[in-house]
Amino acid sequence: MGLIRFAIKSPLLVLWCLLGLLLSITTVPWLAEASILKLAGWWHRNLLRILRVRVHVTGTADAASGLMVSNHISWLDIIVLGSRFHTYFVSKAEVAKWPVVGTLARSAGTLFLPRGGNQSAEISRAMSDRVAKGSYVLFFPEGTTYAGTEVHRFHPRLFAAAIESGVPVLPVALFYQHKPQPHPTVPYLGDQSLAANLWGLLRTPAIDVVIQVGHAIPAAEKQRKELALEAQQQVTNLLQTTIDDHS
Rank of each mutant, 00 (worst) to 15 (best):
A228R: 03
S24Q: 07
Y188K: 06
L21W: 05
L138R: 03
D245N: 13
A96K: 11
P156I: 14
P11M: 10
L19F: 10
T144F: 10
I207V: 15
R115D: 11
H246V: 09
L229Y: 07
Y136R: 02
R52C: 11
V90L: 09
I25H: 05
F140R: 06
N118D: 13
A195E: 10
T26P: 07
F175M: 09
K133E: 00
F175D: 04
S128K: 14
A220M: 10
A61S: 15
K222Y: 00
V151Q: 03
V172S: 07
W42A: 07
T149G: 08
A32V: 05
A32Y: 05
K38H: 11
G116A: 11
G41W: 04
H56G: 06
H178N: 13
N46I: 12
G20H: 00
K225G: 13
G109L: 02
A40R: 12
G59R: 12
L198W: 05
V186T: 06
P114M: 07
W42D: 04
G134V: 02
Q177L: 15
L19A: 06
N237W: 10
R125G: 08
L113Q: 03
V69H: 01
H178F: 13
R115N: 09
Q212L: 00
F140A: 07
F159Q: 08
R115L: 15
W43E: 03
T149K: 10
Q234R: 09
G143H: 06
R45T: 08
T185Y: 11
V80S: 02
T242G: 12
W75I: 00
L48Y: 09
V80F: 08
P141Y: 00
I123P: 04
G148F: 03
I4C: 11
T204P: 11
K97V: 03
A220F: 10
V167L: 06
Y176P: 13
L22P: 05
S83R: 06
Y136W: 14
C17N: 05
V55D: 04
K97R: 12
L21V: 14
L21H: 02
S128P: 09
A63V: 12
K179D: 10
H215R: 14
S24R: 05
A132D: 10
T144Y: 13
L113T: 08
L138D: 01
S124P: 07
V209C: 15
W43I: 01
S91I: 09
I123L: 14
G102A: 04
L238K: 02
R54V: 11
L170G: 02
V69N: 02
H72Q: 08
V167M: 03
L22D: 00
P218D: 03
S35M: 13
I78Q: 01
Y188R: 07
P182C: 06
P99A: 08
T58I: 15
A196N: 10
L21M: 13
R49A: 08
A219C: 14
L23H: 04
E164H: 06
V90K: 06
M1K: 10
P180W: 07
Q119C: 09
L202Q: 01
H44S: 08
A132H: 11
A63R: 02
I163W: 01
Q240W: 07
D77Y: 05
A162S: 13
I79F: 10
L37T: 00
T60Q: 14
T145C: 14
G148T: 00
L76A: 00
H183Y: 09
Q192P: 12
T26D: 06
V210N: 08
V80E: 00
